[in-house]
Design a binder for these strands. Structure first.
Lengths: 201, 201
DNA sequence: CTTTGCACTAACCATTTGGTTAAACCTTTT
DNA sequence: AAAAGGTTTAACCAAATGGTTAGTGCAAAG
């Protein structure tokens, strides 16, 4: 990808918005981060809101199709969930502020345009189908009984939480950041193991 | 507790700060919520920062001692974790914006004063002790092997995540809010069950 | 009745912040 | 070389926002 002014701005906007949130982000901070004049932001993206929308949309597009990739296909429930775990742990590790950003902004309602995103999304996970598969495997006695939504909440919770809680563990519980990061390297394996045992009938 | 202007302000500030975050909160919005003049906020609390500090401190004080209550005492690891799950699920259910607020603000670094809070806290959980207990039970073959920190992350993740992800599930996956809330009533039971199975040797 | 002191308000202030504009600057085309 | 057109900048603007102030109201103390 060419390093145009437009892409430089977007990269800077991602950095600032994702770290500080919409309300906490300053257009000047984005301009500084990009090393260009603030007027350029409006020249290319019109307004803070529009620029934010691009950042948010791309952030979501990096998350949602990953879910679909993992959940569609022929694997068993456990195999699919293992894919979800590994894909998300790896992806979030590259941008630890991402989940808190997405969660916080969606909680702020700032997002009427979620609907428009779903239509744009090339791949959107088919939850009803996956939930059906879970029920079938449960009836077949392959995995323990648990409502599919709860199972999904459990898995995603174990995946996402450590990243958004890292500052708590490091500052409140006072685990050195280096120690915490090295724990995170095994994270996917630990979750997969925990999940497999929990689902053993 | 008497309903003085001071307490009215604090209640309003809690509502606004916890919902919108520090950066998104407006002093005028707090004044409106409290039904009083904006100058009163400064009369009683000096500045936005100071007012925020009180709100944040009380929010944390509602969370940290609960952990200590659950983790200290004589129960087994599973019994203690079950207490944690039930206490937190119940507490968060009363203020669903609370976890995202705390997590977001701590992530923003707005909190050098965490240290001062720990000394103020009447009860602060003794993690090393609890982690030791986990290792002992593992060596005794009572529960499966898993690094204590990972176990804590798993449990807290399953507890906290559903609340902060509720808007995602309702708006993106399009589960009706009423359905989601009724799912949440079983949440504690589901987590406890999931955990017990996962920890079975 | 007057004074004192706290609670409270309307109006105001200074700064920050998102956004605009007019002019300068290239780069390409003619 | 000049014109044209997109790109970039410094300076500027208006609204929003945290914070202040001068003064009003009112109850208790003298």
């Amino acid at each position: 990808m060419p390093e145009t002014t437009e892409t430089t701005i977007l990269a800077a906007a991602k950095k600032v918005f994702i770290k500080k949130g919409y309300a906490g982000a300053r257009m000047q901070a984005i301009a500084d981060e990009a090393g260009i004049n603030k007027a350029m932001l409006h020249y290319y993206y019109r307004s803070k809101e529009k620029l934010f929308r691009v950042v948010f949309e791309q952030a979501m597009m990096g998350l949602i199709p990953k879910l679909d990739e993992a959940l569609s296909g022929n694997g068993s429930v456990v195999e699919k969930l293992e894919k979800v775990v590994r894909a998300y742990v790896a992806h979030i590790q590259e941008n630890e502020h991402l989940p808190l950003f997405v969660l916080h902004e969606i909680a702020q309602n700032r997002i009427e345009f979620i609907a428009s995103m779903k239509s744009k999304a090339a791949r959107f996970p088919n939850f009803p189908q996956f939930f059906m598969q879970i029920i079938q495997e449960q009836e077949a006695g392959k995995i323990r009984a648990i409502l599919p939504v709860h199972l999904l909440l459990n898995i995603l919770g174990m995946v996402v939480f450590p990243f958004i809680a890292k500052p708590v563990f490091c500052n409140v519980i006072e685990i050195p950041e280096a120690d915490f990061d090295s724990l995170m390297k095994d994270r996917a394996d630990v979750i997969v193991d925990f999940m497999k045992n929990a689902l053993t009938p």
